[in-house]
Amino acid sequence: MAEQLSFDLPAKTALGREDFFVSPANALAVAMISASSWPGNKLVLTGPAGSGKTHLAHVWAGETGGRIINAHDLRYDAVPDLATGPIAVEDVPFVADNLEKQKALFHLHNLTLAEGHTLLMTGRLAPRFWEMPLPDLQSRIQGAHHVALDPPDDALLCAVLAKLFVDRQLSPKPEVISYLVNHMDRRFDTAAQVVERLDRVALAEKRTITRALAIRLLNDDTL
């Protein structure tokens, strides 16, 4: 049997539609992203870290010709250019402590919709918890249609783990993924951490990623 080799290569995240696994946990969000129109031309997409918000934003941008910007990178003087087409603003709640970024987003929201384009905003929690100190911005966010990515079911967690391994050019045995699905914390960010640690340990020890290594990793926090 050929030995699986591990190389210290940067993980390349695949963000195409064909790379996104649809399950009952995310089917509604996928349908909304693919809808031809949204109520009021705006949508809030939420979900825990690693749940696929960025992936879906890229799918949406690819299908609409839209652009994606992180809320931290917003500048008031850049708004007129950003509002010339569909725009996605990621991690909006992370600028709740930055009034200038909020003003830029408020301006972007109003100008984008006035120009007849669509606005996608993402965050981890439901919009009512974003608590933007700029009240006009918070009210407009809460006025957007909201769709959430739910915690992963078995099929989705299995697909997420498989994709994380593929992104790192790794091919573990199927029993490795099955074991992880049944024994790890059912969180997307945990899945990313587990795969990263398995990759690192396998590389350091010059070994393949096996079920035994997965068992060892989940039971040894020092790895």
Score class of each variant (00 low, 15 high):
A61K: 04
G47P: 01
K42Q: 12
H72T: 14
G65F: 12
I68H: 00
R67W: 02
P48C: 07
A61S: 15
T64E: 11
H55W: 03
L43N: 00
G65Q: 11
G62V: 10
N41G: 08
H55T: 08
A35M: 03
E63W: 07
G50M: 04
W38H: 09
G65K: 11
H55I: 03
W38E: 02
H55D: 10
K53W: 03
W60Q: 06
A57F: 11
H72V: 13
N70V: 05
T64S: 15
I69H: 06
H55P: 10
K53G: 04
K53T: 05
G50K: 02
I69L: 13
K42P: 00
L43V: 01
K53Y: 05
I68D: 01
K42R: 15
I33T: 03
H58D: 07
R75E: 14
V59C: 11
M32E: 12
L45E: 01
P48R: 07
R67H: 09
L56Q: 09
V44G: 00
A71V: 09
G65W: 12
Y76Q: 14
K42C: 14
I33Y: 04
P39V: 07
P39T: 11
A57W: 09
A31M: 09
G65V: 10
H72Y: 10
S34V: 00
G40H: 10
L45Y: 00
R75W: 01
P48Y: 04
L74M: 07
N41T: 02
V79F: 01
G65R: 12
I68L: 11
P48Q: 13
G66H: 06
P39H: 09
N41R: 15
S51E: 00
A49Q: 09
D73M: 10
H55S: 08
S37C: 10
M32T: 13
G50P: 01
G50C: 04
A61T: 12
L45R: 00
Y76N: 08
L74I: 09
T46E: 02
V59T: 07
N70L: 06
M32S: 13
K53Q: 05
A71Y: 02
S37H: 13
S37F: 06
A35G: 08
G66K: 03
H72M: 13
D73S: 13
L45T: 01
S34H: 13
N70E: 14
R67S: 15
G66C: 04
L43T: 01
A35V: 01
W38M: 01
M32N: 09
A49S: 13
